[in-house]
Amino acid sequence: MLVPQYIVSGITSGSIYALIALGFSLIYNASRIVNFSQGEFVMLGALFTISFSQEQNLPLWIGAIASVLVVTLIGFLLESGPLRRAKSKNHLILVMLTVGASIFIQGTSMLIWGKESKTLPPIGGYDPIRVLNASFIPQTVVIIATATVLLVLLSLLFYRTKIGKAMRAVAEHPEGAALLGVPVKNLVTLSFGLSGALGAIAGILVTPLTTMSYQCGLMLGLKGFAAAVLGGFGSFSGSVLGGILLGLMESLGAGFISSTYKDAIAFLALLGILFWRPTGLFGEAKTYRV
């Protein structure tokens, strides 16, 4: 009798993680970089939308589109600025740069928006939908639908278009791709812009559930990262399923065992899965001939 609500609750949190995990996978697929600023893109998307719609009094959807554009631009700038100008192209160093960028973005956001939590109205209001013994607000459906649509679009982009093919080539072997005339730099920049847009969309959609302040991106980013690892880093469908699975593990752990230890339960399960499948559920094990 209680289980339906546990599952709905898990899917609600899980869909949030899934949406954020998609952004991690996108950049990883195009550049093999783990972008730890992804959580900040989420936060920026939400806070810009709040500013545009609540302070500039624009309609919500115009504010949301403007916000996605602004964060896309920030994604471009992050890549074409600090990352491209870094003297070392070592991936570890570039990853550390994204950590630095994350701290910088947090600090700047604190100065711009202050420290208070803010929120956005949910699409479809707060009136719950009841199915079986479970109730959820329409926003959850919106989040899951968006994650699914984005999953399909990203898969099409990466596996059905020339740009996607080129992006995968760049990730696999940048020098080789460049020799074949692929504009490596532009493609990497594009992937950062796209994941900025993805992060912003995630932020706008999850804020009605989570509320948002300048330091919320960090926690959301970490959960999204865990979801991406669980699903197999770089796999889009893995990201979505990994997110939902993580949410379900938390919720069922809280429901059946103890809400005090639910994070511990979820992370133990995560560790267990990674022992069993070190590349994540949908990650491909790469074999190289030496």
Binding site: S9, G10, V206, T210, C216, M219, K262, D263
Partner: peptide, 20 residues
């Protein structure tokens, strides 16, 4: 008696247990 992490997005699991 149920608990949650302040960063959690959803506390309906705990509240469902409480309701029962």
């Amino acid at each position: 008696i149920e608990s949650f992490d302040v960063n959690d997005a959803d506390m309906t699991t705990q509240l469902t247990k409480i309701k029962s």
